[in-house]
Amino acid sequence: MPDTLDYMITGYALGLALVALIIFSIWWRYRSLKADEAALARLEQDIRESAPVKTAQPKPEPASEKADVAEAL
């Protein structure tokens, strides 16, 4: 029986590493989406709080504020 243990170990290590890579990439993307979602929730909160103020003061430079929000997104 030829001694091919090294090849078996390399093969399994590489194969399982690839599987781990797939899992990691999914996990990573999910995590960054969650961070996005949290930031979005905060932003929505801010907008809801500042909304009454905005109606009281007519048009406080809407263009630049829009650009700010777009940048934050």
Binding site: V19, I23, I26, R29, L33, L40, E44, I47, A70, L73
Partner: peptide
């Protein structure tokens, strides 16, 4: 395993669509 991974992957896709919609709605409301 492939079915479960695909399911996870679809969840990411759904979530990112959902976030995109919310972003657009915020921009639309301003």
């Amino acid at each position: 395993l492939s079915a479960v991974l695909t399911w996870h992957r679809i969840r990411i896709e759904n979530k990112s669509d959902f976030i995109q919609e919310r972003k657009l709605s915020i921009l639309g409301n301003m």
